[in-house]
Amino acid sequence: MIFSDKLHKLLFSLALATSITFSQSLLAADSANKESGFILTSIKPLQLIAADITEGIIEAVSLLPPGASPHQYSLRPSEVKRIHNASSIFWVGPELELFLSKPFSAYANKSHALSALIKSVTKKQPGIDQLLEIAGRAHSEQNHHQDEAHNHSEEDHQNEEDNHTEEEQHQPHAIQLHQHQYQGRDPHIWLSPEQALKIAATIRDVVAAQYPTHKQRLTSNYLDFAQSVETADRTLKQQFGSLKGVGFLVFHDAYSRFVEHYQLNQIGALTLNPSKRPGAKHLAEIRQLINDSQPSCIFSEPQFSGVAIQSVVRNLNIKIGQLDPLGIGTKAEKNRYASFLSSFGRQFSDCLGS
């Protein structure tokens, strides 16, 4: 009996050691297959998308540090060097990160402005299910004809753009203060799940052109990404089902894509320019709007001072929540963007539903 117990322990130890060695070998092989260098994104939300797509292929890093606003920032020498060393660069475009226009102009061959993806919130975008179908079809065909699948995906993407139709803009409330800063071209494109899928497809195609031996892995990563986004999106739609009529205000007008997608009831924004405090007259208008409309919440942002919000809500019956559109608190190591999207949605529902 004693001998049998010792034998079992020995066999267990050998099996455990073999398993660990095998896992380490897989990790080493995966690491050996990764490309040196890195791709660079301007802000963390784009980095979350890029990291999901390039998992196991090349590192994706963010240029701006946590908490920095893409509306206004001064690059440090180390960040200029990072731009120079990146194999490719992804940013929204001058609509959002105007300060990057000049430094990126010197790297036009490797910088990719995603502003071409920015569509009016009044345009009907293809649904996530449709985009998933396209991604799945490309993934299936690539197993047999990798090059043909890539071309087919390009044709599908063009067809999606051509099939957009006009629809009436969602107007949740008669009073609209500072709701149209971008004249229908809100550059915060990553807050739309459908636009995030297009961003991911763009990154996939650019990296595949640079590293064609990784095309199959990139397609597989994209399909995993699309499925994780679809799951998060479906959960959020259920989560917001009973909250669509609950009014709220935001610090600055950055959420039209998210609000439109989930049909939420944003009735106003405190400021057009988040780097400037709103004037006394506008704060008085906001206070009147709160009195008239009785919104449930007003949302601040961690990147900006909450002084204006504290001033406008003094002695008023309204809750204060916080939205993190730049994903400062996102720490996920897998399904990074889906984790960010889910967390961002909870920030809304926690205040609107409480």
Rank of each mutant, 00 (worst) to 15 (best):
Y337D: 02
G327F: 05
F90Y: 10
S23Y: 11
L46K: 01
L10G: 10
Q171L: 12
A209G: 13
G306H: 12
K237V: 13
Q227Y: 13
S36W: 04
Q238F: 03
E168D: 11
C297D: 09
P45G: 04
I175E: 04
A226W: 06
S69G: 03
Q266N: 13
R82I: 08
E97Q: 09
H144F: 14
E260Q: 12
A226N: 11
L117Q: 10
A108E: 12
Y73E: 01
D156V: 10
Q294N: 15
E133D: 05
S300R: 01
H84E: 14
L11G: 01
L131M: 15
S23K: 04
T330L: 03
V313H: 02
S101F: 07
K215P: 02
I189Q: 04
Q171G: 00
F344S: 00
A60M: 09
F22Q: 05
T235W: 00
Q125T: 14
A50L: 02
T54M: 07
H8S: 10
P187S: 04
R76A: 10
P278C: 01
D350T: 13
F340Q: 03
Q347K: 04
K110R: 11
S42A: 14
A174W: 00
T219E: 14
E194Y: 03
Q176K: 03
A254P: 01
P172V: 11
L326R: 02
N265W: 02
D129V: 14
D5T: 13
V121Q: 06
E95C: 04
P212E: 02
H164T: 09
N335T: 10
H282V: 00
S220M: 09
A17Q: 06
R137T: 15
A86V: 05
P66Q: 05
P278R: 02
E333F: 05
H71G: 05
S87I: 07
L10T: 12
E95T: 15
A15M: 14
I175V: 03
I118L: 05
G353L: 02
D162Y: 10
L98C: 09
W190Y: 11
E141L: 15
L283K: 00
G321F: 08
S62W: 00
S120Q: 00
D205S: 15
S115N: 12
G279S: 00
D186K: 04
E230N: 14
E166T: 08
